[in-house]
Design a protein around this nucleic acid. Structure first.
Lengths: 341, 341
DNA sequence: ATGAAAGCGCTAACAC
DNA sequence: GTGTTAGCGCTTTCAT
């Protein structure tokens, strides 16, 4: 690697026979309003083009103390919902001339802290986080230094800016719709009990049961982690305890549902009578032999709101409501099937 | 946002009563070998901790002309294979103290160029790209300035470092296995004809047909783009032309297969007699009512090889083979089904 | 064992 | 209209 030396603004200025600052103005497109002559502008631009001048973001960030960079922390980029969200956000950023830095916490608190610190070192202009921490105190502190928007999960009663799908009500509706079909058991798989995500979905689930008039049984509740392995294990354990598949099961996340599906397909259980439902949809669910009723989040809408919020925070615009609960849809495949036939 | 002023190395030095350079040495863990007294070291570290000192990456990159940053360009992060790959690569980078910058080209040449330039401006220490360009000349030029590793797709006969799944042979095997089951038509969906990805898979497909003794018919070949919409449309067009589903169909990518599945499920065609096969696997395929035979790429292996290669290129280690064709597996679900029952 | 000073590439206030 | 200059925060010689 014989890295050829970088072309700097100094080189351009020298070659164009102007000063650094003039070159800087022109190259930043602000030559016009600042009365640089048309000649000079053309000359500088031309030389820059010829020399393939690439401004150094680092030098720029250093002196302007803006990095034109946004940080995103998600639990897992390979989770389909987060992938869709990230993709959308990346597009929005790119169109706005910002670079998105994506980091994964792998659903792990200390890794999350590491990732966040790393992003701060890189002087991101704003931070968007789907956090797996229990308290918002860390982010409360950070948000004194730079705009922070929490998304997907709220941290306790945090007052920080937040974008999230409404989940209690939608879960309740989903669960009520399913429970109303006359089952006498209805299991619930979720991650750690203390995080808000779990609590909300649990609350929705209980409300749903109540609405449908199914008496709640605490033994139906299972807690693990928000990953496929955990879903697999919880189901495995449940299956061997019951000696059969449960009548109905709600998974609080797509990852858990994934684990359950893996178990079912490996054990040739896909055609048994189990009513699955879950938070988070997947396009392939439409093609499954087993039908899954879901709460569908709108990742584009989430991304758009996050972006809009962080952007106005950064630009210090006054902005609307700083905590937004966005609507989620239900996708009831069983019901649809019933109507069809 | 009253951004409280950033804590710099100057502040630390002042508070610790030492000079900038001493502080720098200590904070970079090189205090020991450079004979800074244990006292001083402890004092500096302690103060840095108290003040939550976060070094500025930009300042550091500016003076050291290394950014500890790697750039990744993929067509679509929301594509499951790329998501898995990115996740894996992100983990490897993080563990090595590097930040991964992910950009999407959306399968679009000019967007790809934009993304790459952007990453170069940010002074990435290396670039990993799954390119949708036709020629490698752009990357040939770039690679004179910084290490570039192409992955997932090769550009013509490019001699640039490359990590890719072997696809001709594996496609041939897959297609032969399917075609050997006595169909008399076997369609082929792919993206643009000129890119190597398409050409390889087409070659594999034709070889497979030949092996199975099925005479190739050019009308079976359909070209579109590598996205789900295109798969949907090609299938739609084919279906209405034939007036029925084709007997067998190979999709050259997971995205195309996605589009086909969407069409099938929307038109209630999932239980018809169609033999699907595709490049790229998905865990949910195990749970589908329609069985799909696939070529399975090993994203972890790909990521690991890319990382290893770019890393040694950056560090200027001598390294092994610079073009690696990694093995891909077959996942034959139909055959498995047949064995089972 | 520690400090002073130059310089990385760029921006922006202020001269001229 | 254009140039001068002083930083931005850090690394890295070279002195002491």
């Amino acid at each position: 690697m014989n890295k050829t030396k970088r072309v700097t603004i100094n080189d351009i200025a020298r070659l164009a026979g102007v000063s650094k600052s003039t070159a800087s103005l022109v190259l930043n497109g602000r030559g016009k309003e600042l009365r640089v002559s048309t000649d000079t502008r053309a000359r500088v631009m031309e030389i820059a083009r010829q020399e393939h001048y690439q401004p150094s973001i680092h030098a720029r960030s250093l002196s302007s103390s803006r990095s034109n960079t946004l940080g995103l922390v998600v639990p897992e980029i390979s989770n389909h919902s987060f992938a869709l969200f990230s993709h959308e956000l990346e597009t929005l950023c790119r169109d706005a001339g910002l670079q998105l830095l994506i980091a994964c916490s792998d659903e792990n608190a200390s890794q999350e802290t590491l990732a966040v610190n790393n992003l701060i070192q890189r002087q991101v202009d704003g931070l968007i986080v789907s956090s797996c921490l229990l308290s918002d105190s860390e982010y409360q502190k950070i948000s004194q230094q730079l705009p922070v928007v929490l998304f997907d999960r709220h941290l306790g009663e945090s007052t920080l800016p937040l974008v999230i799908s409404e989940s209690i009500e939608s879960t309740a509706k989903l669960v009520a719709a399913v429970a109303g079909q006359g089952y006498d058991e209805f299991y619930f798989f979720a991650g750690p009990p203390r995080i808000s995500l779990t609590r909300d979905r649990l609350e929705g689930y209980q409300r749903g049961l109540a609405e449908a008039g199914l008496a709640f049984n605490p033994e139906w509740i299972h807690h693990g982690h928000y990953d496929a392995r955990s879903g697999y294990e919880m189901f495995s354990e449940l299956y061997s305890r019951l000696g059969r598949v449960p009548q109905a099961l709600f998974c609080a996340s797509g990852a858990l549902q994934e684990g359950v599906l893996r178990y079912l397909s490996r054990h040739d259980l896909l055609n048994t009578d189990i009513h699955l439902c879950s938070f988070d949809d997947h396009y392939l669910y439409d093609s499954l032999s087993v039908m899954i009723d879901t709460v569908v989040q709108d990742e584009r809408l989430l991304a758009w709101n996050c972006f809009e919020m962080i952007f106005s925070l950064i630009e210090e615009h006054k902005t609307g409501e700083l905590q937004r609960w966005l609507p989620a849809r239900l996708r009831l495949r069983h019901a649809q099937g019933q109507i069809r036939h």
